[in-house]
Amino acid sequence: MLELYHAHISTCSQKVRLCLAEKRLDWTSHPIEFATGDHLKPAYLALNPNGVVPTLVHDGRPVVDSSVICEYLEEIAPDAGTALMPRDAYGRARVRAWLRYIEEVPTAAIRVPSFNGLFLKGWRQLSDAQRARYIDATPLRKGHYRRFGTEGFSQDQLDESAERLRQTVERIDGAIAKGSRWLSGDVISLADLCVVPTIVRMSDIGLEGIWRDLPGMTDWYARIRARPSFDKAFYPGARVAVAD
């Protein structure tokens, strides 16, 4: 039995939902609401002491970290739905290199404009004491919230984020320009699925212009959106502000 504790708009939750859809696995949904602090309540912290989403529970045992969950799903159900990891060691290494890059660069970078555009207004409405209590209760990323402050991230931080996001879409474009249909070869893999939520978030907050001059990236994204798994992962309410 697979159970997923996830937040509708969480990019990390979205990539796990993409994998579940591609693998055609049945799962039970447990939505986590950030607004009510579900991710910081004792019952959830008992499953995931990091206090972040998502958490997969398989036969009563929790698995944490979205990229780890995606690999875990492939390992427990290699023959279900779409195979998302190559069978050969070199192919798997190529996918994992992408996964490490995605965690290091775009996953971290997208938080900066996301927080400024989506969460700053509500964060400002809290009192200093409320903000301090929230930061104290958060197991991870305390420094991230402190740097966020009450004015949001600085223009320098936004510019650095945009630079890292541009590098990401250029790498995607370069992979496709070399003749591959997907990031690590001719078949879709975890590499593709794990970066998609960042690209969707860029679109939702008005950053599509970052890749408009990149035909390979544009084609890759169109093919991703045409897959049945996309609408299953990005159901109504799972995007923050769908762009026209």
Rank of each mutant, 00 (worst) to 15 (best):
H8D: 15
S10C: 12
Q14F: 04
V16N: 03
R17C: 07
C19H: 01
L25M: 13
T28M: 10
I32A: 00
E33W: 05
D38S: 08
L47G: 01
P49R: 03
N50Q: 12
V53D: 05
L56I: 05
H58A: 13
V64W: 01
D65M: 10
V68R: 01
I69M: 15
I69A: 14
E71N: 07
Y72N: 10
L73G: 01
A80S: 15
A83V: 13
L84H: 07
M85Y: 00
M85C: 12
D88E: 13
D88T: 09
G91W: 02
V105Q: 06
A108Q: 15
A109T: 02
R111F: 00
G117E: 07
L126F: 07
A129Q: 12
A137C: 06
A137S: 06
R141L: 02
G143R: 00
Y145M: 15
F148R: 04
F148Y: 05
E151A: 14
E151R: 09
S154D: 13
L158K: 05
E160R: 07
E163Y: 06
R164N: 15
R166L: 12
Q167G: 06
T168M: 14
G174T: 03
A175W: 08
A177N: 13
V187L: 05
I188G: 06
L190F: 08
D192P: 08
L193V: 00
C194A: 10
V196I: 12
I199A: 15
V200N: 08
S203N: 12
D204W: 05
I205L: 10
L207K: 00
E208R: 10
I210T: 15
W220N: 08
W220T: 07
W220I: 04
R223H: 14
R225P: 02
D231W: 08
D231E: 08
F234W: 12
P236E: 10
G237E: 09
D244A: 11
D244R: 09
